[in-house]
């Protein structure tokens, strides 16, 4: 049985090999976010599935995968036919792979997409604004599968939004927000959240590297740079300038949690 990872055997090469050998069976791709499969008859792809997608749209999504375990099962029969056996189809598949090579998305499609406030004017087309609104809070894989556009078109827009900085792809963490109380830090600093060094180390371990902290009050949220400090249990230290901007005062309870950079 043929098996491996798309990071080592790119999908295009796999397809060329299977088509060249005129094989029949199913190429099963086990992405953490969805199950994908491409069915072959006599070396021709006749059906594809990727999450809720079927046919060429599913194949289009799978063409963008840079990494995922796969295996080829020659015994599996095609459950249905959703792709036409024709020269145009072959050309279309090749075109999809070419187009994907120009899209720059993170390889990890489990990252969660978050909108960011950016300095200065940014002009977004109605289409881009629509994709931005649709993608907020979803994983990259979900955004590619659930858009009104095809996966490739969605990927092209997302790639641009990420490049502009209006969208950020971050590791999705399920860390319970820590209830902390605001403590005033004096001096000219800004954009810093001083947290207890124990909590800092704990969150660093959970995130697995550098992280930012998200602070939520009753009315707003802010992202700040964490700074470990001694004896800060139960507190989050904020500089006076940040406190003024966030309309906070000493002793106010807030919720704080880490977010991967």
């Amino acid at each position: 049985m043929l098996s491996g990872n798309l990071a080592e055997f790119p999908l295009l090469r796999l397809l060329e090999t299977l088509m060249g050998a005129a094989r029949g069976g199913a190429l099963l791709i086990e992405h953490p976010s969805f199950a994908g499969s491409i069915y072959f008859e006599g070396g021709h792809p006749v059906h594809a599935e990727a999450g809720p997608l079927r046919g060429l749209k599913a194949l289009e999504l799978l063409a963008g995968l840079k990494s995922a375990p796969f295996r080829f099962d020659a015994e599996q029969a095609t459950p249905e036919r959703s792709i036409e056996r024709s020269l145009e189809t072959h050309q279309l598949i090749l075109h999809q792979f070419e187009a994907w090579s120009e899209v720059h998305l993170p390889h990890n499609w489990e990252l969660t997409l978050h909108g960011c406030l950016i300095q200065g004017p940014t002009q977004l087309s109605p289409l881009e604004a629509d994709v931005l609104a649709q993608a907020q809070g979803k994983s990259l894989a979900q955004a590619l599968m659930s858009g009104r556009l095809s996966p490739l078109e969605t990927a092209q827009v997302l790639s641009k939004l990420l490049r502009l900085g209006v969208l950020e792809a971050r590791i999705h963490l399920t860390v319970e927000p820590e209830p902390l109380v605001v403590l005033t830090l004096y001096g000219g600093g800004q954009g810093v959240a001083a947290i207890d060094e124990g909590l800092f180390t704990h969150w660093q371990g959970l995130v697995g590297g550098a992280f930012m902290v998200r602070l939520r009050t009753k009315t707003l949220e802010a992202t700040l740079r964490p700074e470990p400090r001694l004896n800060m249990q139960g507190r989050v230290g904020l500089f006076e300038r940040d406190m003024r901007q966030l309309r906070l005062s000493r002793g106010v309870p807030v919720e704080v949690w880490p977010e991967a950079r």
Binding site: V181, D196, N231, M232, Q233, G234, R235, R250, G251
Partner: peptide
């Protein structure tokens, strides 16, 4: 001014 935090320790 921070008397409401009187029982809130720093650990």
């Amino acid at each position: 001014g921070a008397i409401r935090e009187r029982f809130l320790s720093f650990g």
